[in-house]
Simulated scan of single mutants.
Amino acid sequence: DAGLAVVNFGAGFGGRGLDSSLQAAVEERFAAAGAADHTMRNIIALGMALPTVHAHGTDAQKARYLRPGFCGEEIWCQLFSEPGAGSDLAALATRAVRDGDEFVVNGQKIWTSLGHVADLGILLARTDPDVPKHAGLTYFLLDMHTPGVQVRPLRQLTGEAEFNEVYLTDVRIPLANVLGGVGQGWRVAMTTLANERVFLSRRPARRGEGPIGQAVEMYRQEASDGRVDAAVTERLMQLWTAAEAARLTNARAASQAGRQPGPEGSIAKLQMAELNKAIYELCVDLSGDAGLLIDGYTETAPDFAAVHGGADVRKAYLRSLANPIEGGTSEILRTILGERVLGLPPEPRVDRDIPWKDVRRS
């Protein structure tokens, strides 16, 4: 209500119309005051859905969705990827057919983080199969309690079911829940994906926090017991240096929050994915024989995202293996940076101008 959720958002919509660089100071004040951080409980809302609603929504949509999302009253999930459309998201096959003032949706989504606790979902579906794949998509705001929405858990390496698959069977979505206009889904989705990459990579905000902080603490314990050598020390120093460089890149990317994100988001997300994996691999190595076993390997369905690891470095290492996949694979991010930043020759795309219905699919 004070306009401190995202300070550069519009007045009355969680912001004060100020420069986005001031957000870091606001968050520091909240942390110093002891405010709880619920980011990982509603990561899709805060990092992806709400910035997209603010950028493309009508005033009525912003009034309906922004405040409950910021307050944590409504949890969001993302319904983009499909079994046959992950890295090539525009190839998705979930159909939305117009029926009066509603759309009827049928299809399957996968890798839906927190779908089992979500109240709302951002959904990308195909509304026109007669045009090229990027042109026939529409972006919807879906009530996850709508009849025909079925969420099934997917068990991960950690034993947890943070991800899900979602089946949509004759799901009816009001026309008023279209975000950005019918057929404009790809344009709106690019806003979501750009913000997602910035958000996934933005933590930790302070030097020495997060995964690298865990590694340093483990190193100190092992060093005090005389169980480290020069090679391990050098490995930690290289990772700490890379983590600090990544943190500064993240800070630059975060300063663009609310604006159209630039290449910093892809750079930062790529760094985060590769660094998390390397840091937790070091932690497992420092654990010795204890790193071989995980206690309490039972199936649970957590109500928070574990993108940035956790207290148990063994589970955090297993979870980090998903980092180079979620939010854009490392291969795709390298392609984006090569083509759009470095100006390298683009990958061949033979189906770009072909109507989606005529494209061969596996």
Rank of each mutant, 00 (worst) to 15 (best):
Ala36Arg: 13
Gly17Glu: 08
Leu50Thr: 01
Arg67Trp: 00
Tyr65Gly: 00
Gly17Pro: 04
Ala45Gly: 12
His56Cys: 11
Met48Glu: 14
Lys62Met: 03
Arg67Glu: 11
Ala45Cys: 05
Leu4Ser: 05
Ser21Asn: 11
Arg41His: 15
Leu50Gln: 04
Ala33Asp: 10
Ala35Gly: 09
Arg64Ala: 13
Asp19Ile: 00
Gly69Leu: 02
Ser20Cys: 00
Val7Met: 03
Ala55Arg: 12
Ala25Leu: 13
Ala45Phe: 07
Gln61Asp: 06
Val6Leu: 12
Leu22Gly: 02
Val53Gly: 02
Gly15Met: 02
Ala11Asp: 11
Gly72Cys: 00
Ala36Met: 07
Ile43Asn: 12
Val26Thr: 03
Ile44His: 12
Ile44Phe: 12
Gly10Ala: 13
Gly12Arg: 01
Asn8Gly: 07
Ala25Tyr: 11
Ala63Gln: 11
Met40Tyr: 15
Gly10His: 07
Phe30Tyr: 13
Gly14Pro: 07
Thr58Cys: 09
Ser20Glu: 06
Thr58Ala: 06
Gly12Pro: 07
His38Trp: 12
Phe13Cys: 08
Arg41Gly: 13
Tyr65Val: 05
Ser20Ile: 01
Ala31Pro: 01
Gln23Ser: 02
Ala24Leu: 14
Gly15Asp: 08
Leu18Asp: 10
Ser21His: 13
Ser20Tyr: 00
Ile43Leu: 14
Thr39Leu: 14
Leu46Pro: 05
Ala5Ile: 03
Asp19Cys: 03
Gln23Gly: 07
Arg41Gln: 15
Pro68Trp: 04
Gly47Ile: 05
Gln23Pro: 01
Gly69Pro: 03
Asp37Ile: 00
Gln23Met: 06
Phe9Gly: 08
Met40Trp: 15
Arg41Ile: 09
Phe13His: 13
Gly47Asp: 00
